[in-house]
Amino acid sequence: MPTVSMTVNGKSVSGEVEGRTLLVQFLRDHLSLTGTHVGCDTGQCGACVVNVNGDSMKSCNMLAASADGAEVKTIEGMANDDGSLGVIQQAFQDNHGLQCGFCTPGMVMTADDLLARNPNPSEVEIREYLEGNLCRCTGYHNIVKSIQAASAAMTAGE
C-alpha cells in the first residue's frame, strides 16, 4: 500500500492508503478531520471542497495518493490561532449563511479561495464562483451576503 505524506493545516501527516483511497477519506477516516463533508460523492455538490496547493478542489474527486507532498487546508484550518472563528466563518454566523450546515465547510473553503484571488468580488462574481457548491437550505442569498461581509471585514482589517 502506498504511503502518503502531506501538510494538512500546517501539520505534517502521513499514512498508508489504498490506491483507491480518496483524499476526503484520508482526511476524515485517517486524520479524523471530519469537518470536510461528503455530500453527493459524485463531484457535483462541493461539500468536500478543500484547498490543495492554493487551489480549491473537490476532495471526493481526488485520490489521496495524488495529494502526496501537497499543502492541504481544510475547514479545521480556517479558525484563528486562539480557536475563535476566522473572518469568513464569523461572517457566515453573523449573516445566517448556513441553516443545516452540511454544505458550509465547502462554501467557506470556496469563499476562502475566491477572496484570495479576488478580495473584492461583485455579487455576480461570488455567485459564479459558487457554481460548484450546492446548498439546499438557504437559497444562497445569505451565503452571498456572508462572503460580501467577509470581503469587507478583510479589506477593513488590512
Binding site: V49, S56, K58, N61, T110, Y129, E131, G132
Partner: peptide, 9 residues
C-alpha cells in the same frame, strides 16, 4: 468547463 474546483484539477 465545470466549476472552479473542477477547473483546478
Amino acid at each position: 468547463i465545470g466549476d472552479p474546483a473542477v477547473r483546478h484539477r
